[in-house]
């Protein structure tokens, strides 16, 4: 039984919301049913097979081939199974997913992993702004699971993030971890301005020293935190620097802030 494979016929003329695909489990639905799923394309409704060639069998695995940055909400609400995106993903990748895995071979658009509660997203390329962030009005961004970005993340990565782990191999943009509520963000490369602004709690682990932190962060000293060993163990084997952190943990410089908001967040900078 082969995976259900949707091959994008051509770049769609407007953004397409693919959440209907994962609104219910794929398994148990017929290929004909999938082909006939109504999708909104601009101000019209089209059948899914007007945009995609449908092959394979609906089940636990879904492949989207020739994917494009106009395909929004891939894997929204995913509860289990796997989605493999060959190409780029649009905005809201994996929105509110609770389980399963999504891999993207290219880049992901804005708000990937927003409201994510569980499961795993791996993006080989870059992620757009507001990765793992809350959409306006939602009070929590990512709330669980693991996100691993092979490339860079845009601005505001982890804004209002509440739980889970967000790992960015490359660099992160401005205001990383803004208004972060809790959870763990790790960045391998550089970060932009004002990391941790209005952060409440949570951990930002930077493998590369930042150019500066907001004035509402105070230095607390240099420590080998046992907690980091737990993270290292949890991440062991992941591609990139986080999969190879020393098992005994790291020694880090610890900064706490944002003092405007209780100051219980931490930015840890690898020595």
């Amino acid at each position: 039984m082969s995976a259900l494979r949707l091959t994008l016929i051509s770049r769609p003329p407007a953004r397409v919301d693919l959440s209907p695909l994962t609104a219910q489990p794929l398994a148990g639905r017929s290929a004909a049913e999938i082909a006939a799923l109504p999708l909104v394309l601009g101000n019209r409704r089209v059948r899914l097979d007007e945009l995609f060639r449908v092959t394979g069998t609906p089940g636990e695995a879904l492949e989207i081939a020739g994917s494009d940055d106009r395909l929004d909400r891939i894997g929204a609400g995913l509860a289990g199974g796997s989605i493999v995106v060959e190409g780029d993903a649009g905005a809201y990748l994996g929105q509110r997913m609770t389980g399963g895995s999504i891999t993207v071979s290219g880049h992901a658009g804005a708000f990937a992993a927003t409201g994510m509660k569980g499961g795993e997203i791996r993006v080989a390329g870059n992620a757009g702004d507001f990765l793992a962030a809350a959409i306006p009005g939602d009070h929590q961004g990512m709330q669980g699971g693991l996100v691993l970005v092979g490339g860079n993340a845009g601005d505001r990565a982890g804004d209002r993030m509440r739980r889970g782990a967000l790992l960015v191999t490359g660099s992160a943009g401005d205001y990383c971890a803004s208004r972060m509520v809790a959870g763990t963000i790790a960045v391998g490369g550089r970060v932009g301005r004002s990391t941790g602004m209005a952060m409440r709690r949570g951990t930002v682990l930077l493998l590369t020293p930042p150019a500066g932190l907001p004035p509402t962060f105070n230095a607390c000293g240099r420590f080998p935190l046992t907690m980091l060993a737990l993270l290292a163990r949890a991440w062991r084997g992941l591609p990139g620097p986080f999969g190879a952190l020393p098992a005994a943990g790291l020694t880090v410089r610890r900064f706490m802030g944002d003092l405007a908001n209780d100051g219980k967040g931490e930015v840890l900078v690898r020595e």
Binding site: M197, T216, L259, A260
Partner: peptide
Amino acid sequence: LGDAFGVMRALLAGRPVDADAA
């Protein structure tokens, strides 16, 4: 300016601010 507002919030709450400028 966001930094300055943050500093003022911290000061208003009686928290120590080590930075010398915002």
